[in-house]
Amino acid sequence: MKIRAEVRLKPGHFDPEGDVTAKSLRELGFPVDAVKVGKVYVLDVKVNSKEEALRLTEEMCRKLLANPVKDDYTIEVLNT
């Protein structure tokens, strides 16, 4: 089953990478106020149910993919 986990900075946390990207886009003439940069993990997980896939990916985010001090994450199933 393919799962998409998106990890990004929590609201209120300064995102230096996003800041630099926004500046660079503005220099190119784009009307960009702000950019937030995150990471997307597309996982191929061996499971039997959607529920199990979501539960395991949640655990993966807690244990490795995100640092709860600064990161939020969202998880979705891409196909079944």
Partner: peptide, 14 residues
């Protein structure tokens, strides 16, 4: 611990 209590994030200067 299972989850970190602090983080070392990207430098403010990027």
């Amino acid at each position: 611990g299972e989850t970190p209590l602090v983080a070392l994030a990207t430098n403010s200067s990027a």
